[in-house]
Write a protein that binds this DNA or RNA. Structure first.
Length: 375
DNA sequence: GATTTCGGACGATAAACTGA
DNA sequence: CAGTTTATCGTCCGAAATCA
């Protein structure tokens, strides 16, 4: 895998988009596009018409309309698994590298739930002068013969050989909840905002468009859009310390067509079946913290089952696998009731794995008792 | 402030399934 | 049988508790 920073686009991509993407400065660097792809575009191509033909430096087939502020599009066909370039400056929530684990932690580290390394004695054991007891533990054998139900196949988007789902699949992990629809948590950091954006985009299943290549709309929370910092010494319109009132902004519906309620947005009338009654002006959206309040009634144009309500609040709809990712982090502060460890509690240590993710594997702890479910 | 505890997120991977 | 999906098990993050 040669995942390299998209910033130096392949030859076929001249200088579009121009310069550093204008991106809400307080959000940090703009999220990277998948390798070899164009960065997200918070603005229309230099020339819509020519963009359509791939002229003027704009990629062919790129968007031909002007997105409202706060909306980005990403060509569906180009999606690939996202992997942030090394040493990128992507916000941590986005760029967080996968945690690497040693194959086997020493018994000491394992017991302490601390990071170990391959060496023996490991660094930690040396540090604490317990090098002599730094030995590998023993892995337990995986259970066999456990029957499972039929698998649900993931819908292979666009059948593309890339095979993998949208790039957005990746980092949803932290805090989709930030500005996602219901009961979401208050916004926190720019980083999580970015993550949220990706998470949301993930919900729009490709191929849902009637014929044409769908674009993934990526919505930015209103507060994300502030003028870039002044570069020439002049005062920026409104991003100084005073936390300017975010420009009012509508949430749009996902779908194969660009959201039309935006003035000066569409080149033509929306297709009949998408026509909507005149939308009342969006209510002024409250400050960031409550951005979450007004979720887009995500469906309407929504084809098939494409969009699930962005149930950010943990319910992590989607696949079972994601389980933890979606669920846990949601409110950032996982409060834990530290059990009152009464003095010298023998290190029987947690009946391993009994707790957290569902007691499904309670058996593990139960060591003695063979897996409950296995019948 | 350093160290210990430990809940739970996350990574790795083997076993069960599936489709060709 | 190769590829995919899922369950299981291990690692270790990170916050609270405790110690010195």
């Amino acid at each position: 895998m040669t995942t390299e920073p998209p910033k130096a686009p392949p030859s076929q991509e001249p200088q579009y988009p121009p310069a550093p993407v204008a991106y809400p400065h307080h959000l940090g660097p703009y999220p990277h596009a998948p390798p070899g792809h164009y960065p997200y575009l918070p603005f229309p191509p230099p020339d819509a018409a020519s963009a359509e033909n791939g002229q003027n430096g704009a990629p062919p087939g790129f968007m031909m309309f002007h997105p409202p502020p706060g909306m980005l599009y990403y060509p569906a066909a180009q999606t690939q698994p996202y992997s942030p370039p090394p040493n990128s400056q992507v916000p941590s929530a986005l760029a967080r590298p996968k945690r690497k684990q040693v194959k086997m932690a020493c018994t000491n580290c394992a017991q302490a739930c601390k990071r170990c390394d391959e060496n023996r004695p490991c660094e930690r054991c040396i540090k604490y002068n317990i090098a002599d007891s730094c030995i590998d533990g023993q892995r337990k054998e995986r259970k066999k013969g456990i029957k499972r139900g039929p698998y649900k196949r993931k819908n292979k988007m666009s059948g593309g050989e890339g095979g993998s789902p949208s790039f957005a699949e990746a980092p949803a992990e932290s805090s989709v909840g930030e500005w996602a629809p219901s009961g979401a948590q208050p916004a926190t950091t720019p980083a999580t905002t970015a993550a949220a954006i990706q998470a949301v985009s993930q919900q729009f299943v490709p191929g849902s468009g009637p014929g044409g290549e769908p674009f993934y709309p990526l919505y930015y929370p209103p507060h994300a859009f502030l003028p870039p910092p002044p570069t020439d010494g002049t005062e920026a319109q409104s991003h100084p310390s005073g936390a300017p009132p975010p420009p009012p902004m509508t949430y749009f519906l996902p779908g194969p067509y660009p959201p039309f309620p935006y003035p000066g947005f569409m080149h033509g009338p929306p297709p009949p079946h998408l026509q909507q009654p005149p939308q009342p002006q969006p209510q002024p959206i409250p400050p960031p913290a409550s951005v979450t309040a007004q979720p887009p009634p995500p469906v309407t144009v929504d084809p098939a089952g494409a969009a699930k309500p962005a149930s950010a609040n943990g319910s992590d709809v989607s696949t079972a696998t994601e389980t933890s990712a979606g669920a846990g982090a949601e409110n950032g502060s996982k409060k834990r009731g530290r059990g009152a460890k009464n003095g010298a509690e023998p290190k029987a240590k947690k009946a391993k794995r009994g707790s957290g993710k569902g007691s499904k594997d309670d058996d593990a702890g139960a060591a003695g008792g063979e897996g409950g479910e296995a019948e």
